[in-house]
Computed example of a mutant assay.
Amino acid sequence: MVKAWFFDEKIANPREPCQLENVSLEVVEALGCKLFKFDAENKEDCISLKKIVKDQNYNFQDEITVSREKLPEYEKKVKMFLEEHIHDDPEARACLDGSGYFDVRDKNDKWIRILVEKGDLLIVPAGIYHRFVPDLNDFIVAIRFFEGNPVWTPINRANEENIEKMPIRQKFLATLL
């Protein structure tokens, strides 16, 4: 089962677990995140994965391998993934192999770390501050799902003065009330 906890910001290396107290999956789901399990070994024939894809209206997908050997400009990309940001669309990732961390901000602006491992599918809602980092294994293979044309453009919190006024951010905040 997917595991989540509050992120310890005192730990220098964000690829470490940086674990404080555990967070229930109900808390993560209350933020609008959706968590699923699927059969990563049989992804092509996995009925539960096909159902999720259909129910979420995903019509585009690709596969990404995040590792030093496979991802060009690995350190630059990992640094980019670690930038706190939002998207106009949900971010959906199904872990086929390896593991990594998605960090999401809770309603009190605290980081909650979500460990994704082989067979986990996480959907992060549009408008929530989040980031991704590989764990100490530096290896994850994931399917990225999209509804419509794929959009990879992050809206970085540090670079956007009016991010809190953006309609997608306001829509997300309204779901927390």
Rank of each mutant, 00 (worst) to 15 (best):
D109S: 06
E164P: 06
P125V: 01
E164K: 10
V2H: 15
R157S: 08
F81G: 12
E164Y: 13
F81D: 03
E160Q: 15
V66Y: 01
N156E: 05
L20E: 07
K34F: 02
L136K: 14
V151G: 00
E83F: 06
R144L: 08
E9Q: 12
D45F: 13
L96I: 06
V116A: 01
E147W: 00
A142C: 14
F172D: 10
D138W: 01
F132I: 14
C95M: 11
F146V: 03
R68A: 11
K51H: 13
R15G: 01
W5D: 09
F145A: 02
Y129L: 06
L71Q: 07
A126C: 04
S67D: 01
E84R: 12
N22R: 05
L82D: 07
K107W: 05
K70N: 14
Q170W: 00
F146M: 03
V116N: 01
N22V: 00
E147Y: 05
V53G: 01
L25I: 14
E41K: 15
E160N: 15
Q56N: 11
R93M: 12
N156A: 14
S99V: 03
L35F: 09
R15S: 13
E75A: 09
N159C: 08
A12E: 15
A30G: 05
P167F: 11
K10Q: 15
D97V: 00
R68G: 08
D89Y: 11
I163R: 09
V53M: 14
D89I: 12
F102R: 08
V151D: 14
I143K: 12
I140W: 02
R105L: 13
N149Y: 09
E160P: 02
E161D: 10
I112W: 02
L176H: 00
D39K: 10
R68K: 15
L136Q: 13
K76E: 14
K171W: 06
F172K: 04
A92P: 00
F172I: 03
K107R: 13
A12N: 14
I140Q: 01
L82R: 09
G127H: 08
G32P: 04
P90M: 04
D88Y: 12
W5Y: 13
Y74S: 07
E161H: 11
D55C: 03
I112V: 02
I155C: 07
L115R: 11
P134T: 11
L35E: 10
G100W: 00
F7C: 09
A158H: 05
D103E: 09
K110F: 04
K79N: 12
P72V: 07
P125M: 08
K107F: 11
E29R: 12
W152G: 08
D8G: 07
T175A: 09
L177K: 13
I47T: 14
Y101A: 04
A12V: 14
A142W: 00
D120S: 11
E63W: 04
H87M: 02
N149L: 03
S24W: 00
H130G: 12
I114N: 08
L173E: 13
L115Q: 12
K34V: 01
H130Q: 07
D8E: 03
Y101E: 11
D8W: 02
K54G: 07
K165W: 08
N149S: 13
D106R: 03
K76P: 02
L71Y: 06
L177V: 08
V141E: 13
I47S: 15
L136W: 00
D135H: 11
A12T: 15
M166S: 10
N57W: 02
P125F: 10
L176N: 05
F102L: 05
F6M: 04
D62K: 04
I11A: 00
K43F: 10
E75L: 07
